[in-house]
Amino acid sequence: MSFDVPDDLRYLESHEWVRVAGDTAAVGITAFAQDELGDVVFVELPEEGAELAAGEDFGVVESIKAVSDVYAPVSGTVTAVNDRLRDEPELLNEDPFGDGWMLEVEVADESEVDDLLSPDAYRDQIE
């Protein structure tokens, strides 16, 4: 099975994606990740204003039979949290790159983005 890996995003080996626009970055998990987890039933996210450090875990995604930490692709301050996930965790399964976004972060150090996987590199990893 091949999974969608949008070309406008950057990735972490641990299956998070980041979409950078100016000094803001949206963060979520990939289509591959949601498929591995199965039906997502619960998402635990930090509050607005929380500080993320690149590579550190910031939240938890639970399916029926698995628990996964979610890691921050970049450092920065959380400026928005997708509250819909609280009641509709299935959005992570249905639309991981869209409505299933998790956080928006004000990026502290844009150079960290360069360390992330390109779409091709991530594609290689999951194939």
């Binding site: 039933v41 619960f42 639970e62 399916s63 029926i64 039979k65 698995a66 628990v67």
Partner: peptide, 12 residues
């Protein structure tokens, strides 16, 4: 809510 339990969450 079995993700709370030892067979899934182990040491956590």
């Amino acid at each position: 809510l079995q993700t709370r339990e030892q067979h899934i969450r182990k040491e956590r």
